[in-house]
């Protein structure tokens, strides 16, 4: 019998979309799924109770502040004692914590899986997604992070999970949380948006970046960026799409003033439809775009926002 622990990431209101994808992945492995909530929040717990496919919600208390890996890893290990698989989404939260838990359990983690072959065998992208490796884990307990764009979000309306009181997080004392500066935006979250409008170095400056706003507003889109645009300070780091940033797979991805380096493609090539706007007709982005428009973005974008 496969018993699976899913580590939730939540924001004081609900578990995030990546966690719902990890639950879908867990359902492909087995059917006893426990969801570990690392926040002492009634609102999160009550909402999580309704996620379909979850048997138990494990609550926690104690020093959970800031989600510090040093404090949480021993607690997660304790909850993982009788399970065969531990899953989380492959966002920065899971990437930070899961390897620490995996090493405490002397298990070789499997990162960023995009397909499940069977309970031991998984497919994961390597080399910025330019190759796919099928790997079989020989460890007794498997620690896995899940690429959320590869698995649909679990239904979070029709479930009825039991609530089970879990362990208390203790302070390790070696690290402390100071603060979080989250980017404020009224737009949809990048990894959950149906449409993403992304800008690159071609945009030219932080001020110019607002040229994308009317278009994003009209489309109800999230705004993303290439690494070059983030490095140059046009937009904050959490806009970065790519191998080492966020992975997105919206219905429509519009790449504007982005050349199409493999590291950028790694984060968006699974989008359903890709549109590229670039003044260089030989830009590599056109090799993967479904529709390309060659021209100056400073003329095209205002016209497009106007007419769309």
């Amino acid at each position: 019998m496969m018993s699976i622990l899913v580590i939730a990431e939540s924001n004081g209101i609900e578990v995030d979309r990546g966690t719902l994808s990890a639950i879908t992945a867990a359902q492909k492995i087995g059917d006893k799924i426990n969801l570990l909530i690392l926040e002492d929040s009634e609102q999160v717990i009550n909402k999580a109770k309704k996620i379909k496919g979850v048997s138990n919600i494990i609550t926690t208390s104690g020093d959970l502040q800031g989600g510090l890996a040093e404090n949480l890893a021993p607690l997660i290990s304790e909850c993982a004692k009788d399970v065969t698989h531990v899953l989380s989404s492959a966002g920065t939260f899971g990437k930070n914590i899961m390897p620490r838990v995996s090493a405490l359990n002397d298990s070789q983690q499997i990162s960023d899986i995009c397909e499940i072959i069977d309970a031991d065998t998984f497919v994961r992208p390597i080399y910025a997604g330019n190759a796919l490796a099928t790997v079989k884990s020989l460890d007794k307990v498997k620690f896995i992070t899940v690429r959320s764009t590869a698995f649909q979000a679990a239904n979070d309306q029709e479930g009825d999970a039991e609530i089970v009181e879990g362990p208390v997080a203790e302070t390790n004392g070696k690290s402390s949380f100071v603060k979080r500066d989250l980017s404020e935006s009224d737009r949809p979250e990048l990894t959950a948006a149906k449409i993403v409008v992304s800008g690159g170095r071609g945009i030219g400056s932080a001020d110019n970046f607002s040229i994308l706003d009317p278009l994003a507003d009209k489309l109800g889109a999230a705004v993303g960026a290439s690494r070059a645009a983030v490095d140059a300070g046009y937009v904050p780091n959490d806009y970065q799409v790519g191998q080492t940033g966020k992975v997105v797979a919206p219905e429509l991805y519009i790449a504007i003033g982005i050349s199409g380096a493999i590291q950028h493609l790694a984060g968006m090539k699974d989008s359903k439809t890709i549109v590229a706007i670039n003044k260089d007709e030989d830009a590599p982005i056109f090799q993967i775009a479904d529709y390309g428009l060659v021209g100056d973005l400073f003329e095209i974008i205002p016209e497009l926002s106007d007419k769309i």
Binding site: K174, S176, D181, P236, D238
Partner: peptide
């Protein structure tokens, strides 16, 4: 660098 922005810690 975290998904939502930036975080400050002391270690």
């Amino acid at each position: 660098e975290i998904d939502g922005g930036l975080e400050t810690l002391n270690v």
